[in-house]
Amino acid sequence: MNTMKIAPIRRLPVAPRRSARFLRAQFRDRAVSKSALLVAILPLSALLATPVHADIDNYGLLTGINSNPGQAVEFSTLTNTTIGSVITVGSLPRNAVFSPDGRYAYVVNNGGSVSVLDVSAHTVVGTIGVGTDSSGIAISPDGKFVYVTNYSSNSVSVISSATNQVVSSISASRPYGIAVSADGGTLYVTNLQGASVTVIDAASGTALTSVSVGISPVAVVVSRDGSRIYVSNEGNGGSLSVVDTASRTVVATINGPAGMPPCLPTAVAFM
């Protein structure tokens, strides 16, 4: 069974922030089982200005990656204890995101669905059908759209958070990880079999360009200032590609230390 190290989470000053301040990384060794836990942390956001939802300002979510039916449980980052009972979601949950206001969590299930959780009620309030082998998930900064990658369907499902329905589908080649720019205008999608990241205009769904990165890119995140994206690659022992978003070129490649056993970096995040 895998183990996963989660960096300490700090309680921040009262001033609202637009994004979470935490560090998370997951590595999966080739020799061990794929069974693991996925962690999503609710940003310490502007909920302080919305008293009715202030109680969920310090929530996190754990999902069992290989559970079927899927299982999720909320926890408090203040007390480091679970909240409520186990929540049943779709089969084989993979990733999760919170809405910007913290009211909802969206869990993407590899079985081809997205479970919508009411965070305060600790319950599933909606199930949205997407494509096949769905894995990556991201939400627009304004919370209006949720994006889901469907590996075997070669598509990205675009979900309206207002209706919890798929409103469009974007063509992609073996998409796996996904991230959204800070202004919500650009999507970055990793192509697991293509050793590349596709840059997509979010409004039109049009592919703008493709950036070559390492072999088997899985996860992608955008820097706080939007100037860089960071892509974790599983191939050749694992690496991290640093891409300049203005020139859309790789400006650095970070490899593991010499002598480090081969590993598969499956996620990346930063302060």
Score class of each variant (00 low, 15 high):
14 V>T: 08
235 G>I: 03
106 Y>D: 01
186 T>K: 12
171 S>D: 13
47 L>W: 02
24 R>G: 09
28 R>L: 10
227 S>Y: 07
20 A>Y: 11
9 I>M: 06
102 G>K: 01
109 N>Y: 12
78 L>T: 14
46 A>Y: 15
37 L>I: 14
99 S>I: 10
88 T>N: 08
121 A>F: 10
217 P>T: 15
66 N>D: 13
9 I>F: 03
140 S>F: 13
175 P>E: 14
151 Y>T: 00
253 T>S: 13
158 V>F: 15
64 G>F: 02
94 R>P: 00
110 N>T: 02
12 L>P: 04
179 A>S: 10
165 Q>G: 09
58 N>H: 12
156 V>D: 11
139 I>R: 04
158 V>I: 10
72 A>L: 02
11 R>A: 11
61 L>I: 00
252 A>V: 05
150 N>H: 03
2 N>P: 07
92 L>S: 03
161 S>D: 01
4 M>A: 08
183 D>K: 05
102 G>F: 02
69 P>T: 08
230 Y>R: 10
45 S>D: 15
246 A>H: 08
129 G>F: 03
13 P>G: 11
147 Y>H: 13
216 S>W: 13
207 A>I: 09
124 V>S: 00
168 S>G: 04
260 M>T: 12
154 N>Q: 08
74 E>C: 01
12 L>F: 07
111 G>E: 09
216 S>V: 10
78 L>W: 10
60 G>L: 02
154 N>Y: 05
133 D>G: 02
142 D>T: 06
265 P>A: 10
52 V>M: 03
204 S>P: 06
252 A>C: 05
122 H>K: 10
110 N>L: 01
253 T>Q: 14
123 T>R: 12
141 P>H: 10
190 T>K: 05
15 A>L: 09
230 Y>T: 07
55 D>R: 03
106 Y>C: 00
260 M>G: 02
15 A>S: 14
21 R>W: 08
109 N>A: 09
106 Y>E: 03
218 V>I: 12
204 S>N: 13
123 T>W: 02
9 I>Y: 09
21 R>K: 13
176 Y>G: 01
240 L>Y: 11
100 P>D: 12
264 L>A: 06
17 R>L: 13
68 N>Q: 10
270 F>K: 07
82 T>N: 05
121 A>L: 08
27 F>D: 06
263 C>T: 14
271 M>N: 13
73 V>Y: 07
89 V>N: 11
67 S>E: 15
238 G>I: 02
131 G>S: 04
43 P>Q: 07
166 V>E: 13
119 V>L: 06
165 Q>W: 08
66 N>G: 03
125 V>A: 06
227 S>H: 11
13 P>K: 08
109 N>F: 03
20 A>T: 14
201 D>R: 05
181 S>W: 12
247 S>P: 10
70 G>W: 07
130 V>F: 03
228 R>N: 15
16 P>K: 13
94 R>M: 07
38 L>R: 06
207 A>T: 15
121 A>C: 10
227 S>M: 11
159 I>N: 03
99 S>P: 05
55 D>Y: 01
125 V>F: 07
247 S>Y: 12
180 V>G: 08
52 V>E: 14
112 G>Y: 00
